[in-house]
Amino acid sequence: MILQAANPAAPFLARKLYRYRWLLYELVSRDLKLRYRGSVLGFAWTLLNPLLFMAVYALVFGVYLRIGVRNFPVFLLSGIMAWGWFVSAMQSGTSSIVDGRMYVGKTVFPAELLVIVPVLSNCVNFVLSLPFLVAIVFAYHQHLGLPLILLPVIMIIQALLTVGLLFFVATLNVFFRDLQQLIQYLLMLLFFLVPIVYSANVIPQSARQFVLGDPIAVIIMAYQHIFYYNTFPNLAGLGLVFVLAIVLVITGYATFAHYREMLGEYL
């Protein structure tokens, strides 16, 4: 084993992930276990969560506010489940390095894993609640078809984008703990900026370019295309988001690697 100046390059990250695959697996499964430890329903919450979410939003936006989308629960659920993955990963990911302070800076523990774990564990949750989404789709007599093959691709793009963002945010949060609070409101704002509880058609033409250019919106709408419209999503848009995600992962990891050795001093 030879140690030289730190290598912040992303291929190095990939090698590291392979090297620590068991640790990653352990941390993700522990994260999932801890989430429902001490709760009566336990794992059932994975399915209950989207159901309750759907019930609340369907009531507010489908019944009271009358968004006017046909089969609103299907539309809502196809976007909000992926949003749930994103937002939970961002929330626990932001404080992941601070929360893992016992590992950072003083031991050989690969701290980058701390950032990746919430993305993966929430991804597992997302996947496990997919059958519920499928059941709702069929319950409303809608169809699923060939666009479904793009699902893994969209998920990979979303995972990369979230990881890239988190490398920045989690690193910065070590130096400015305000971020942990701030991010809640930013995410809430983003939630309403992305067409999740309303359809993109209702956005005024003047603002449409702005809202739909949001990479998160591109991803969420891709899920809606697959599960609600049963059509292929905007591939060019997804391609751009993919490139953006890669750039974010590379620069985010470089930023994290740059500050890595300082993190311990601030925790």
Binding site: M1, L3, Q4, A5, A6, K106, T107, V108, E261
Partner: peptide
């Protein structure tokens, strides 16, 4: 141990 990487 590999916690810190050498600058040189």
């Amino acid at each position: 141990a590999g916690v810190y990487a050498p600058d040189e």
